[in-house]
Simulated scan of single mutants.
Amino acid sequence: MMWEQRVVVPLKICLVGLFGILLVFQTLSLPGQFRYMAEQHPEDADQRWPLTAIAVFLVLCVQVVVVATWKLLGLVSADRIFTRDSLVWVDVILGAIGAAWLVVLAIFLWVGFHADDPGAPMLLLLILASGTVLGLLMVVMRALLRQATVLRTDMEGVI
Rank of each mutant, 00 (worst) to 15 (best):
M1V: 03
E4V: 00
V7H: 11
V9S: 07
L11Y: 05
C14Q: 07
L15S: 02
F19A: 05
S29T: 08
F34K: 10
M37V: 07
M37S: 09
E39C: 00
Q40W: 11
P42K: 08
D44R: 14
A45Y: 02
A45F: 00
Q47V: 12
Q47C: 08
W49F: 00
P50M: 05
P50C: 07
T52S: 01
Q63I: 05
V64S: 11
W70G: 07
W70S: 01
K71Q: 14
L75Q: 03
D79G: 05
R80I: 09
L87W: 10
V90E: 12
D91G: 14
D91E: 15
I93N: 11
I93C: 09
A96Q: 13
I97P: 06
L102K: 12
L102I: 14
V104C: 14
V104H: 14
V104Y: 13
L105P: 04
L109W: 12
L109E: 15
L109N: 05
W110E: 14
A115G: 10
D117A: 00
M122I: 11
M122V: 04
S130I: 02
G131Y: 01
V140D: 15
V140G: 15
A143L: 09
L144H: 03
R146C: 05
T149G: 11
R152P: 00
D154C: 15
D154I: 13
M155V: 15
V158Y: 13
